[in-house]
C-alpha cells in the first residue's frame, strides 16, 4: 500500500463570478522511502494540491471531490481534530519562504519544541533537548547556543534547515516539500536537497517534492507527476518519463531546457500561455499550445490512462509524441 494516495482530488476557488476549478481530478501515489515530484509551472495547481493535502487551503478554496488517503485515513473526510492529531506525526510540510514561515517573535528553540509539546506533551525542558538534537541533526552549528536565537539571526539556508527540522521532528509518514529551495542560491540548494534525501532514507518517509525545476526532479525524484492547468497530464518513473515523454507538454518542457545550444541560437520554448482557469477549453487542456492537436482533442478531454509499465499519460496521441 502506498504511504499517500491521492485520488480524483478537486479544489474549487470561490469567486464573485462563480467557482474556479484550480485542481481538477488530480491523482498520484507516493511510496515510503521514495520521492515523488509534482512538476508544473506557476499557477498549474501544484501548490494548491499540496495545501489541500495538508488541509491548509485559504478559506475561499475548498476540496469538492476526491480523497487523500494516509495510513488508512481519508484526510478529506477526517474531522478537524483528527487532522490536527495527524499534523506532525503523520503528515508534515516544508514551506517555501523560510523567513516568513518562522514566527519572528519566538526563539527557534521554542518553535522546534512545539511539535513535541503539542503531540507528546513533553515538558519544556525535555522538548528543548529534542529541539537541540534536531538542530544538530540538520547541521546547524553550535545548536546548544543557537537554540535561543531568533529566526532573523539565521541565514536563508539555515532557516530552511530549521523548517525541515520542524517538519521531520515527529518522523512523519509523508513529508511535503513545497518549493523548498526556490528562495536559496544554488550551492545551498544542493545542501538542502542532500539533507532531505538523507532524512528520507533515515526516517523512511515518502517525500512529495513540489517544484517547477526540471533539473531538481531529474536529480532527486523517483517518480514524477506533471501538472498542467489543474490536471495531471503525465506520470511515471522520472527516468522513463524524462527519457521518452508520453505527453506533448512534458516533451515541450524538456525541449526547452538549453542543453546543446550554441551562442546566438534561438532557445526552444512552448508557444502561447497556459489557459485562464476561468476559460479552460472543453477538450484537452493543452490543445491551444499542442503541436499534435487535432479535432479529437477539441471534442474530447483525454483521460490519464496507462501506457506502459507504471506510466500514464493523458493524451489521445501519446504514441506520436
Amino acid at each position: 500500500m502506498s504511504a499517500l494516495s491521492v485520488q480524483d482530488l478537486t479544489v474549487d476557488i470561490e469567486t464573485p463570478n462563480g467557482p474556479l476549478r484550480a485542481v481538477n481530478g488530480v491523482g498520484f501515489e507516493a511510496e515510503q522511502g521514495e520521492t515523488l515530484a509534482l512538476l508544473g509551472e506557476s499557477g498549474c495547481g501544484k501548490s494548491m494540491t499540496a495545501q489541500a493535502i495538508v488541509g491548509l487551503l485559504e478559506p475561499i478554496a475548498s476540496v469538492t471531490q476526491g480523497s487523500v488517503t494516509l495510513n488508512g485515513t481519508d484526510l478529506v473526510k477526517a474531522s478537524r481534530r483528527k487532522r490536527r492529531q495527524m499534523a506532525g506525526p503523520e503528515l508534515a510540510i516544508v514551506f517555501q519562504d523560510a523567513l516568513t514561515a518562522l514566527n519572528p517573535v519566538y526563539t527557534v528553540g521554542t518553535q522546534l519544541a512545539e511539535p513535541f509539546r503539542i503531540h507528546r506533551r513533553m515538558s519544556a525542558k525535555e522538548a528543548r533537548g529534542e529541539a537541540i538534537e534536531l538542530m544538530r541533526r540538520v547541521g546547524i552549528p553550535h545548536p546548544d547556543k543557537r537554540v535561543d536565537a531568533f529566526p532573523h539571526q539565521f541565514s536563508g539556508g539555515m532557516r530552511q534547515r530549521l523548517l525541515i527540522a520542524m517538519a521531520v521532528a515527529l518522523n512523519p509518514t509523508v513529508l511535503l516539500a513545497d518549493e523548498p529551495t526556490t528562495a536559496l542560491d544554488v550551492t545551498v540548494q544542493a545542501q538542502i536537497m542532500a539533507l532531505l534525501k538523507d532524512l528520507r532514507a533515515e526516517r523512511e518517509m515518502a517525500v512529495v517534492l513540489i517544484t517547477h525545476d526540471l533539473a531538481l526532479v531529474a536529480e532527486e525524484a523517483d517518480k514524477v507527476a506533471v501538472m498542467y492547468a489543474g490536471h495531471v497530464v503525465e506520470t511515471g518513473p522520472v527516468s522513463e518519463v524524462f527519457g521518452d515523454p508520453g505527453h506533448p507538454y512534458t516533451k515541450g518542457l524538456l525541449d526547452s531546457v538549453p542543453v546543446h545550444v550554441a551562442r546566438g541560437e534561438e532557445l526552444a520554448s512552448i508557444g502561447g500561455t497556459p489557459p485562464d482557469l476561468a476559460s479552460i477549453p472543453s477538450g484537452c487542456v493543452y490543445q491551444a499550445r499542442c503541436p499534435l492537436a487535432r479535432q479529437k482533442c477539441r471534442d474530447e478531454r483525454p483521460q490519464l490512462k496507462a501506457t506502459q509499465g507504471q506510466r500514464k499519460a493523458a493524451c489521445h496521441f501519446t504514441e506520436e509524441v
Binding site: A87, G88, D97, L102
Partner: peptide, 22 residues
Amino acid sequence: SAPYVRLARSKGAGDLRVVTHH
C-alpha cells in the same frame, strides 16, 4: 493570515494556541 500561522497549523497547533500564542 501570516505564513507562520500556517506553519503552526501544519504542526498540529489548535485554534486557541494559534490565536493566543502565535
